[in-house]
């Protein structure tokens, strides 16, 4: 099997279902899939650089350049370094090829593609941006922290949901660029299609990977606890695939939806999602009235509960 057929990179904005798909594909008899290793993100960080005020570049490329190591040599060694760990894991698992997913790779895609180009096959998973924002908000509250890639956005916006919607736009734009540049070497999968008809989507993805579909992949994957690594906690709490997580954003306050729509609409439409109304015509007086009614309503509900108790 050629090097480019051995490696599969599963990409998507965090909270897009990448762990679910990793677990499904990792149950195939040919595909070994560890939990998140951070290898590709780590390799991407090697190419990141700063430029001083007098135009001097600071970073690995520049630093090694001073001792006669050129960019191609560095990339080649990074590829060997990353692939060695994954090849070893694959061999131990008794399989033929590996699949790596790290939900934060989507933010470093230009550097990852620059290094690995067509040496791996790419699966790009996209989920509705407002559902991603809601889920990221929930995840950040439960984990009581922001991963550095998301913290960059939180620092720029006082509203976490708006920060996460912006993060989704950036990650999705990176995915779109990769899909365009990689052509047949990349496939787009929508989370909503995956959970609505997992059998059909799995078959389509496996066809892209030139692998035959296998019986019981979904059932086995959902009951498998062997491949737990640094990964998404929520996927392991579910014993079935369903569409319950689709459209959760619609219960957000109308004002919030309008704000998020103005951020995400263009990218939503690029990926075939419906445009969301982004007009918010409510006057400050009406917004205040809405707030007053909400308070009175909550008081009425708690008084009703006390009365019933």
């Amino acid at each position: 099997m050629s090097q480019s057929d051995r490696g599969i990179l599963l990409l998507g904005c965090p909270r897009s279902g990448t762990t679910l798909l990793r677990r499904l594909l990792g149950n195939h008899s040919s595909i070994a899939s560890p939990g998140e290793t951070g290898l590709f993100r780590g390799a991407a960080n090697f190419l990141k650089k700063d430029t001083t005020g007098v135009g001097v570049e600071l970073g690995v490329l520049s630093g090694l350049g001073h001792i006669g190591v050129n960019e191609n040599q560095i990339k080649s060694r990074l590829i060997d370094f990353v692939f060695a760990f994954l090849d070893e894991y694959t061999q131990k698992a008794g399989k033929k090829r590996w699949l790596e997913k790290d939900a934060f790779n989507a933010f470093s895609l230009p550097e990852i593609e620059d290094i690995f180009a067509d040496r791996v096959r790419y699966i790009c998973l996209v989920r509705h941006g407002l559902d991603v924002a809601v889920s990221l908000d929930e995840f950040s509250q439960k984990s009581r922290s922001y991963v550095s890639e998301l913290h960059n956005y939180i620092q720029r916006s006082a509203n976490p949901l708006e920060a996460f919607a912006t993060a989704w736009v950036d990650a999705s734009s990176n995915l779109r660029n990769l899909l365009q540049s990689q052509g047949d070497n990349a496939i787009l999968v929508k989370y909503e299609d995956l959970v609505a008809d997992p059998d059909a989507e799995l078959e389509r993805i496996l066809h892209f990977l030139n692998e035959p579909a296998e019986d019981g992949m979904i059932e086995n994957a959902l009951s498998d606890s062997e491949s737990i690594g640094l990964s998404d906690w929520k996927s392991y709490a579910r014993g079935s695939i369903d569409t319950e997580s689709i459209g959760r954003w619609s219960s957000l306050p109308p004002y919030t939806i309008a704000r998020l729509a103005s951020i995400a609409n263009e990218t939503l439409q690029v990926f075939g999602y419906d445009e969301i109304g982004d007009e918010w015509n409510e006057s400050p007086e009406l917004a205040r009235r809405r707030y007053e009614i909400g308070l009175a309503l909550n008081l009425a509900k708690s008084q009703g509960k006390n009365r019933d108790a």
């Binding site: 219960s251 306050p253 007053e292 009614i293 309503l297 008081l299 009425a300 008084q303 009703g304």
Partner: peptide, 26 residues
């Protein structure tokens, strides 16, 4: 609660009334 608040605002608009806080009861 968001939908109920919106319903009360529709009621106020359609009935041309402003419901005082003490009347917002179950």
């Amino acid at each position: 609660s968001f939908t109920m608040v919106s319903l009360i605002m529709v009621i106020e608009s359609e009935a041309d009334i402003t419901i005082p806080p003490e009347d917002i009861t179950l």
